[in-house]
Nucleic acid binder design. Structure first.
Lengths: 196, 196
DNA sequence: CCTACCGATCGGTAGG
DNA sequence: CCTACCGATCGGTAGG
């Protein structure tokens, strides 16, 4: 019987524990011994699955980066309006936070500990993503469907609002993800859209 | 001749260097030897001015916390409308970022490395600040001057947008602080205010 | 503010 | 996946 689909591999388990601990204590303050202890193995055993501590961070951050890039490529290839593109991206961006709170948190807060050449690659991917989002905003302004705001400020106001949901969202707080999503969309899009 | 007002004390110099390095590399990854080297003294000499590394972080974070608390107390004691309170606080919040980029960045990103009892004190102060800002938003909704959004989501959308200006603002980018301030105000307040 | 130094901890390796 | 271990580094101290 194939149990691969049902059980989580040790490698994935190490990654999940790492993401949780990196989020709680930060990358630099988390030790290989702590990760091992939380998995239930010895520190040396982690090195059978990963080259080193830096590879753990790399895997976490680049999984998130790939998710964003994939979604952006998909959106870019459609012919929907800038408003719909923006709304879709914001919704996706928020959903990804709920799907992978630890991974997003680590990516937001610990990416600078990535080693080269990963660090440069990560920064480049993020820059590309931000440029593309900026383009959508500029298009919206040019078409007259968005207010004539500074597109850089608009870009980072959107990104900050959604990137940092991770920092305050607590499942026990009893705000449903849908409510968060709808309200952020409402506030940002009302703030940006031109009254018609 | 009194040169105190003109020269920066060694103690302040150590704090400024610490804030810069904590921002660049993170608290845990910054060593006392690095701080000392950037000041131009030996590591052991820092201990003449500060009890330890943790005190450096404490001083940085609590200076920022005091700034916020002071401003909130001042605003609370006025009788201006919720809209004006919000606008004033947002403007202040953004200005403080430009005044003290390193300190704000360290406070945003490294506060969790504070030691007890400082950690609890810091979290309590932040919670109080957020509650008061939330109250202003609730008041605005009740008075019918703000849209009926979820006040928690509105609170953190505002806070994220302004807290993280620090993360993307670069003086060389040539966007004037005033433009950033006006645009964020425009986006957030247009998104939140009820059309009259 | 410096020289000299220490105890603890950490990432990682050898070898099985 | 474990036992045994190492070299390096770090925060901090003693004493001047």
């Amino acid at each position: 019987m194939n149990t691969k689909a049902l059980t989580i591999s040790r490698k994935e388990e190490i990654l999940e524990v790492s993401a949780r601990l990196f989020k709680e204590k930060g990358y630099a303050s988390t030790t290989m011994r702590e990760i091992a202890e939380n998995v239930g193995i010895e520190a040396a055993s982690i090195y059978h699955h990963f080259k080193g501590k830096d590879e753990l961070l790399h895997e976490i951050c680049f999984k998130v980066a790939r998710d964003y890039t994939t979604k952006m490529v998909n959106i870019e290839s459609t012919y929907i309006s800038p408003i719909d593109k923006l709304t879709t991206l914001i919704r996706f961006h928020i959903q990804i936070v709920f799907d992978n709170v630890n991974g997003i948190s680590v990516t937001n807060n610990e990416w600078r500990h990535l080693l080269e050449p990963g660090l440069s690659e990560f920064k480049k991917a993020r820059q590309t993503y931000e440029n593309q989002l900026g383009q959508i905003i500029n298009e919206g302004i040019k078409l007259g469907v968005l207010k004539e705001v500074d597109s850089t400020v608009a870009l980072y106001t959107i990104l900050s609002s959604i990137r940092w949901v991770e920092a305050w969202y607590k499942p026990e707080k009893d705000i449903h993800p849908n409510i968060i999503e709808n309200n952020i969309i409402q506030i940002l899009m009302n703030g940006l859209q031109k009254a018609s």
